[in-house]
Every structure is written in structure tokens, then in C-alpha cells.
């Protein structure tokens, strides 16, 4: 196990991961507060907020759940809630698949368990690090656990304080997510080979965001863009 070989390096990487996730955790915090406030409005108890943030830990699925939630237990649509979580989170198939290089073949089950801590934000930071030839399991865990704690703390804060809190979008904090992901994307530029997949992904995402709604655009853009990139690469090799 790599942790036994160099424990100090595990700690270094863990803190590096947490530090690197500070910018994205600002948007996690902003979304967390908003979700907590809305969850209170939808009638979730504080205990249910803690359970959902702690066990589901997936912002977009939690937002969708609020639309379906009912305060009358017998009217709670259990099946649709679970199905909605499944559909909204399908994009994670693509995200966690790209983390494969972090794990040795014999570590895949250990890796599978760790995937529970992955969110859009920490995934993005980790693949950004991997693109620079770095990135490690410890980095992923450091960012993941930091984001988990922030999400938990801020959703609870939102629920407790309710509408006494200002809307974070008044301070532009909702844009932290887009800004960070845009900067990460620019940092991944490796040359003209990236142009085709990025443009295809962006166009597919824009079209599907208009036509389908929900969070499908991430999955659809991701699949079309990456396939276009792989196809373009193969064509260049053939020529």
C-alpha cells in the first residue's frame, strides 16, 4: 500500500487536495446554504437534512428531490425520488471512470468504495491535477472530505437559519462554480487536439440543455465530446 511506503507524503497530498479545493468549496458552500434554506421550505426536518447530505452527498440530486418531497409520509413518492437520484447522477459514470489511473489494478474495490466521496468539484480538481502529471488517491480524499464537511456544515446552516440568510447569488457566489470550471478547462488545454472534443461537448451540452433540461446536458455533452475527441485522434493516426 502506498500509504505505508510514505505516510508523510500521504498527508502532504491530502492537505494539497484540501487546499486546492478551497475555490470550488466556496461554490459548494453557497449551493449548500441555498439547498438548506430550500429544504426547510420543502418541509425536511433537520435530521432528514443531515441524513440526505451525509448519505446521498450529491447536490443536483438533492435539489431535484426537494421538488418531489412531501411532508405527508404516505404521499412521499419513494420510487420517483430514487429514480430521479439515479438519473441525475448518471454523469458520475463518466466522472469516476476517468479516475482509473489513480488506482492499481489490485486496488479497484478499495477505489470503488472511495468513489462515494467524489463530487463534481473534487473530481474536477483531481483530473486537473492529473492533467499536470500529478494527482493521487490522497489528493482526491483530501479534497473530497473537505467538500463533504463543507456541504454538511452549510446545508445544516441553511436549514437552521432559514430565510434569515441572504441569497448567495446577490454576491455573485453562484458564479464561483462556472468560473472555477472554466479556469480548470483552460488549464487542461494541451493543443489543437482538444479543440474538436471541447467544441462538440459545448454544442451538445447547449442543445441538450435547451431541449431536455435537468442535468442531462453534462452527460450528453461529455459523451459526444469525448467520443469526438477519440474519433478525431484515431483519424489522425490513420492519415
Amino acid at each position: 500500500m502506498s500509504t505505508l511506503v510514505a505516510p508523510y507524503r500521504f498527508a502532504d497530498q491530502f492537505y494539497a487536495g484540501a487546499r486546492a479545493c478551497i475555490p470550488v468549496c466556496i461554490s459548494v458552500a453557497a449551493y449548500g446554504v441555498v439547498w438548506g434554506v430550500l429544504a426547510r421550505g420543502a418541509g425536511l426536518s433537520l435530521f432528514e437534512v443531515i441524513l440526505m447530505s451525509g448519505l446521498v452527498f450529491a447536490g443536483s440530486a438533492q435539489f431535484v428531490a426537494l421538488d418531489l418531497w412531501s411532508t405527508t409520509p404516505s404521499a412521499l413518492p419513494i420510487g420517483p425520488l430514487i429514480l430521479a437520484a439515479l438519473i441525475v447522477n448518471l454523469r458520475y459514470l463518466l466522472l469516476t471512470a476517468t479516475l482509473r489511473p489513480l488506482f492499481r489494478p489490485d486496488q479497484q474495490w478499495k477505489g470503488a468504495v472511495m468513489m462515494g466521496i467524489v463530487s463534481d468539484e473534487t473530481w474536477a480538481m483531481t483530473v486537473g491535477e492529473m492533467a499536470r502529471g500529478r494527482g493521487s488517491i490522497a489528493f482526491l480524499l483530501g479534497g473530497g472530505i473537505f467538500a463533504y464537511v463543507v456541504w454538511m456544515a452549510m446545508t445544516v446552516t441553511g436549514h437552521v437559519l432559514g430565510s434569515a440568510i441572504d441569497d448567495p447569488s446577490r454576491y455573485g457566489l453562484d458564479f464561483a462554480f462556472t468560473a472555477t470550471f472554466l479556469a480548470l478547462l483552460l488549464g487542461m488545454w494541451r493543443g489543437k487536439g482538444d479543440l474538436v472534443p471541447w467544441i462538440v461537448a459545448a454544442l451538445a451540452a447547449i442543445v441538450s440543455a435547451k431541449l431536455v433540461g435537468g442535468s442531462w446536458y453534462i452527460l450528453i455533452g461529455g459523451i459526444f465530446g469525448s467520443l469526438a475527441g477519440a474519433l478525431a485522434e484515431r483519424r489522425r493516426h490513420v492519415d
Partner: peptide
């Protein structure tokens, strides 16, 4: 190519 494509799709 997935990471770049997903980030482009997100933004």
C-alpha cells in the same frame, strides 16, 4: 478526452 469534454459541457 472525458475530463475536458465534461468540463466544457458543464460551463
Amino acid at each position: 478526452h472525458i475530463p475536458g469534454a465534461v468540463l466544457a459541457a458543464l460551463v
